[in-house]
């Protein structure tokens, strides 16, 4: 590449750059727009919704953080999503191991059954799920939402782990079996360490999805003190009178954590997204 001048590259690649450039601009603009708008006054926004703020204000960012309680919501999100991701790591790796390595008559059927759950629209089970959580006395508790989230993401997570274990060389596990290790020991000391890439991918994806979940968070957490970030955002948006800059401030705050994950866990993300799609 070193020998090619920019002019030559432009001559050859201008069409590709144009397409990719437009797409990149479309990807970045939400972040740029929110960043600019959060510092505008309402009047300035109405006058010019695109340009930079002439007199930047911190009013809306402050309001979103204080009376909007965005920091409190963020704390709840981290507790709930963190715990659910942990449970998913444990439950899904065990289940995936059983379905892939151990295998038994009917294990394929169970696997297909779990996969079928991926096709159930959330709207269908929304009401009865809420009833179930209520009957267990878990409405308005972190634990209720943690279990709901675990159940929500288990099918995908089991699918991911099963596919990963399927790709592991059998010989390693069989060798350990021969040495007389118990199944649990083989799982813990050999299979789990080997599956670190899959586990980190699964954790990243589940974190992002659950961090963004609205519907069940809204239903199960009825106490303002227990609510998560997307609900806080929906509250902000649901108030008829919320001015655009205040909404932008809320959006900005909710974008920060996912952006951090995006840049830190790049590799896990693309690995997870492509899992199972190619073979």
């Amino acid at each position: 590449m070193g020998g090619v001048t920019f002019r030559e590259a432009l001559g050859r690649w201008w069409a590709a750059w144009l397409v990719l450039g437009v797409l990149t601009a479309m990807s970045i603009y939400p972040f740029v727009f929110v960043l600019i708008t959060a510092f505008k006054t309402k009047i300035a926004y109405n006058k010019d919704p695109i340009g930079l703020p002439a007199e930047p204000t911190l009013e809306y960012l402050e309001r979103a953080l204080t009376s909007g309680n965005m920091l409190g919501y963020l704390g709840n999100s981290i507790i709930v999503v963190g715990a659910a991701v942990l449970l998913l790591l444990i439950f899904a790796s065990m289940a995936g191991y059983a379905l892939s390595v151990l295998r038994f008559r009917g294990s394929n059927l169970i696997f297909m059954g779990i996969l079928a759950l991926l096709a159930v629209p959330a709207a269908v089970v929304m009401i009865p799920l809420y009833r179930t959580v209520g009957q267990l006395g878990l409405v308005n508790t972190h634990f209720g939402l943690i279990l709901t989230y675990t159940a929500l993401q288990l099918p995908f997570s089991i699918f991911l782990m099963t596919s990963y274990f399927n790709g592991l060389p059998r010989e390693i596990i069989e060798a350990a079996d021969m040495d007389g290790a118990t199944r649990w020991q083989v799982f813990r000391t050999i299979a789990l360490p080997l599956s670190f890439p899959a586990l980190s991918t699964m954790a990243t994806l589940n974190f992002l999805w659950l961090f963004n979940e609205l519907l069940f968070a809204l239903l199960i957490m009825q106490d303002d003190a227990n609510r998560t970030l997307p609900v806080g955002l929906a509250t902000l948006q649901g108030q008829n009178t919320t001015p655009v800059p205040l909404l932008a401030a809320g959006l900005l705050i909710s974008m920060v954590p996912v952006l951090a994950v995006f840049f830190v866990a790049q590799r896990e993300l693309s690995r997870g997204v492509t899992a199972g799609a190619i073979k």
């Binding site: 990149t24 990807s27 961090f211 955002l233 909710s254 996912v258």
Partner: peptide, 12 residues
């Protein structure tokens, strides 16, 4: 960059 929007929630 093209992957970036995938991390945004539908609410956002």
């Amino acid at each position: 960059m093209i992957f970036l929007p995938a991390v945004l929630s539908p609410v956002v």
